Amino acid sequence: MDGYERRTVRDTVRDEARTVEWAVVGSGVGPLLLAATAEGLVNVVFHADEAVRDRALTRLVERLGGVEPVADASGRLAEPIRMLDAYFAGEPRDVRPALDWSLTSGFNRQVLRELATGVPYGTLVGYGELAARVGQPGAAQAVGAAMGANPLPVVVPCHRVVESDGGLGGFGGGLETKRRLLELEGVLPEPLF
Rank of each mutant, 00 (worst) to 15 (best):
D2H: 14
E5G: 13
E5F: 06
E5K: 03
R6P: 11
R6F: 13
R7F: 14
R7C: 11
T8S: 07
V9I: 12
R10Q: 09
V13P: 00
E16T: 10
T19F: 07
E21N: 11
E21Y: 00
W22H: 08
A23K: 00
V25L: 13
V29C: 11
G30Y: 00
P31N: 12
L33D: 00
L34N: 02
T37P: 10
V42P: 12
V42C: 14
H47A: 13
A48M: 12
D49R: 10
E50M: 13
R53S: 12
R55C: 05
R59T: 15
V61F: 07
R63S: 10
G65F: 01
G66S: 10
P69Q: 10
V70M: 06
V70F: 10
A73H: 13
R76D: 13
A78K: 08
A78S: 15
E79K: 00
R82E: 15
L84E: 01
D85Q: 11
D85R: 01
A89W: 06
G90K: 03
E91Y: 12
P92G: 06
R93I: 00
R93T: 08
D94P: 03
V95Y: 01
V95D: 11
L99Q: 08
W101F: 14
T104E: 04
T104N: 02
T104G: 01
G106F: 10
F107V: 11
R109T: 02
R109Y: 05
R109N: 04
R109H: 05
R109V: 04
Q110S: 09
V111M: 02
L112P: 03
R113T: 08
R113K: 14
L115A: 04
L115H: 05
G118H: 06
V119Y: 03
Y121T: 06
L124A: 01
G126N: 10
G126Q: 11
G126F: 08
Y127K: 04
G128W: 02
A132F: 05
G135L: 04
Q136T: 05
A140P: 07
A142R: 13
V143F: 09
G144W: 09
A146C: 12
G148S: 14
G148K: 07
P151T: 11
P153F: 12
V154Y: 00
V155F: 00
P157N: 04
P157Y: 02
C158Y: 03
H159Q: 13
R160K: 05
V162G: 00
V162E: 03
E163S: 10
E163Y: 07
E163I: 02
S164I: 00
G166L: 00
L168Y: 09
L168R: 06
G170F: 03
F171E: 05
L175F: 08
E176Y: 05
T177E: 02
R179H: 09
L181D: 01
L182C: 06
E185V: 05
G186V: 09
L188T: 13
P189Q: 06
E190R: 15
E190G: 11
P191A: 04
L192N: 06
F193E: 11
